[in-house]
């Protein structure tokens, strides 16, 4: 019996631990805010565990203790009553003290999060059903550029994020880097994040926003500063030229079909702003807001039938001939 229970517990532990991948966990903190939040979580959990253990010990002691023979159950012994009153008062006082300490700790941790300074790197994040628009704002507007669903930041620097919702309320949450912040239509929220070390951190919309809320994820990729500058320079550049005939055919098909009405590819006639910017879509890790790894195959599958892969999203099924689909997927995969 005991062995069976032990086996069941081990199985449950294994199942729950399988969810603890390193790139999206508040307990794997790699950002300044996330580290102080993690300390707060550990502090509160530790104190609550100690209190719980003490209460359990007291309760087991009270249950197991042999009751002394009383002269009558209803009789009050003044000395005993006084002692019990003191214990109850002490416990209530201790509870008030502990909760006050929690309140203060929570207040000071949260305050420290919001006053973090920032430097010149400001990124505007727009939450849309169901993807993330990412716009790098630079003091020189010529250096600004758009991308989607993937945020590169230099490690060790404060990055200022300006958050806006375009349709409904979304919430920006990268557990390894910072707490949640909502994106609300019609107003601007801000958050400063900082990755202490290079790495890939997964984020997720944390406010239910409709059918595909679960498929609204993104990556924050913290690079070494020189790698970040190289990446930014590459992203700023217009799209690469077609290197072979099939890619050129794909480009022409893309421009003549409805694709170009919603998507932008800088350096071409495609200037739509309703869908994600595709100028360097081939260089991003995933498509469809974390739905698939970016490959020519997954791009083709997505274009062929977006409503089966992510039902309800705003990309329509555009009827294409097989050779057009092949060419367009080759073209998009080539946009590194």
């Amino acid at each position: 019996m005991i062995r069976r229970v032990a086996r069941l517990l081990a199985l449950l532990a294994a199942i729950s631990l399988a969810g603890c991948e390193n790139w999206q966990s508040a307990l794997q903190a790699h950002g300044a805010s996330a580290i102080s939040l993690k300390h707060l979580i550990i502090f509160i959990v530790a104190v609550c565990s100690i209190v719980w253990a003490l209460v359990m010990v007291a309760m087991i002691y009270a249950l197991a203790r042999r009751r002394a023979a009383w002269r009558a159950p209803t009789e009050l012994i003044p000395e005993r009553e006084r002692r019990m009153g003191r214990i109850v008062t002490a416990c209530v006082g201790l509870t008030v003290v502990i909760i006050s300490i929690f309140t203060l700790a929570s207040f000071f941790t949260t305050r420290a999060l919001s006053v973090a300074g920032s430097d010149d790197l400001t990124i505007r994040i727009s939450g849309m059903q169901w993807w993330w628009g990412v716009q790098y704002l630079r003091p020189n507007p010529k250096q600004a550029f758009d991308t989607a669903n993937e945020i590169h930041i230099p490690a060790g620097r404060n990055v200022h994020l300006v958050l806006e919702g375009d349709d409904v309320i979304h919430s920006f949450w990268v557990p390894s880097l910072a707490g949640k912040q909502d994106l609300i239509p019609g107003r601007i929220n801000e958050i400063t994040i900082r990755a202490e070390r290079p790495g890939i951190y997964r984020g997720q919309c944390a406010e239910f926003c409709g059918l595909q809320h679960a498929h609204m994820s993104f990556f924050v990729i913290a690079d070494e500063p020189q790698d970040f500058e190289r990446w930014a320079a590459a992203q700023r550049a217009p799209a690469t030229q077609a290197s072979d005939e099939e890619i050129a055919a794909g480009r022409d098909a893309f421009m003549s079909k409805p694709c170009a009405a919603c998507h932008s590819i800088r350096g071409t006639k495609a200037t739509g702003t309703s869908g994600p910017d595709l100028t360097h879509v081939g260089s991003r890790k995933t498509i469809g807001a974390g739905l698939f790894e970016t490959t020519r195959g997954s791009l083709a599958a997505w274009i062929a039938d977006p409503q089966t892969l992510k039902p309800g999203n705003n990309m329509p099924l555009v009827p294409l001939a097989p050779e057009e689909l092949r060419a367009i997927s080759a073209y998009l995969a080539s946009l590194k």
Binding site: S256, K257, P258, A260, A261, P316, P319
Partner: peptide, 8 residues
């Protein structure tokens, strides 16, 4: 017709 699909 070149910007939208039929159902749109």
């Amino acid at each position: 017709k070149n910007k939208m699909t039929t159902d749109e």
